[in-house]
Amino acid sequence: MRDGRWRGPGSLGGVSHVVVDVVLKPEISDPQGQAVLGALGRLGHAGVTSVRQGKHFVLEVDGTPDEAELKQIAETLLANPVIEDVELHLPTD
């Protein structure tokens, strides 16, 4: 876990891992993503037609995560709902 091998939501040793992904809404232009797309084109990756850059948060939570509380955290601090969409991934096991 601490060595960076962990990749997705899950639970281990009483600690749950919750993942929150944030990305700009489709109607908000993303100049950073466009800059990455431009670089990919220069590197010869003509098959990539769009890049949207976002943020990926990993939260360690003691015990069983409270979905309502995490939804509030995601929607009120981690993302700005005026311009961003947010996806919450809770542990499934």
């Binding site: 700009l24 232009s29 100049p31 950073q32 800059a35 700005n80 005026v82 311009i83």
Partner: peptide
């Protein structure tokens, strides 16, 4: 960000 004004400010289009 505090919700007192509408809209949001983000990265300049030319970066």
């Amino acid at each position: 960000e505090a919700g007192l004004l509408p809209g949001a400010l983000t990265r300049n289009s030319h970066l």
